[in-house]
Design a protein around this nucleic acid. Structure first.
Lengths: 113, 113
DNA sequence: TTGTTAATTAACGAACGCGTTAATTACAGC
DNA sequence: GCTGTAATTAACGCGTTCGTTAATTAACAA
């Protein structure tokens, strides 16, 4: 499986996205990541492995704990991929506004109603 | 399956991303979308259905052809989701640059080498 | 050593994703 | 009507994903 697909697939799960959101607030152990979820620890461990394989998370070692950290490189790659399409929706509302203004005989500039 | 997961899952396939890239260049029929891929038409049709269910593509009707169009709303939602994390990597290089400049006793401002 | 906590691995079953080929629907043109 | 083209649906096999529970590894602590 290619890199981008692996990253997108890793993000295609609400549990895993919640774990990323938690890690965005700072490091956390596997147990801390598991706590909010009504799910067995092995299931969480597996989700973490998916995130690791996508490069979204790295694990450290502190005695029997594995402090997990958010890695942003994969997110940057997603962002880069998105940039191709961003021009399609950035300014789309402006275009609609312009169109509405044209057919209503108004200027495209802002004005009070 | 939740909306965001459906979108991410739809993007987690190189064939489907290639179809989106093709559609970014303009409308295309199912056959035109299939042409570049060494894959059966039913497989392509299924990929298209995945993209449709994610809201990334809409199909029209022109006789026996189905002109497909790129829809950007799901991409906007991805972009919105990304915005939470963008602050983690935007300016990261700047921060590294600043750090390097500090330990090397230089100003953080640009200067010729 | 013994016991406890943190986390992973093993083994299993249910569900899904992805590809194929064959059959089917829908439309155009003679 | 009949034929050809565009596209979908049906049926099947295969591999992966996702959850579970039970067993295992690793590290601390009495």
């Amino acid at each position: 499986m290619d890199e981008l697909s692996t990253i997108f697939a890793a993000l295609a799960d609400p549990t895993r996205r919640a774990m990323l959101a938690r890690l965005a607030a700072g490091e956390a152990t596997v147990g801390e990541l598991a706590a909010p979820h009504d799910m067995s620890l092995p299931a969480i461990s597996r989700h973490l492995k998916v995130l690791e394989r996508a490069g979204l998370v790295t694990k450290g070692r502190d005695a029997q704990w594995r402090p997990c950290r958010l890695e942003t490189k994969p997110l940057e790659e997603i962002d880069e991929w998105m940039s191709t399409y961003r021009k399609f929706f950035e300014g789309r509302l402006d275009a609609l506004d312009t169109h509405l203004n044209i057919i209503m005989g108004r200027s495209a500039e802002k004005e009070e109603s």
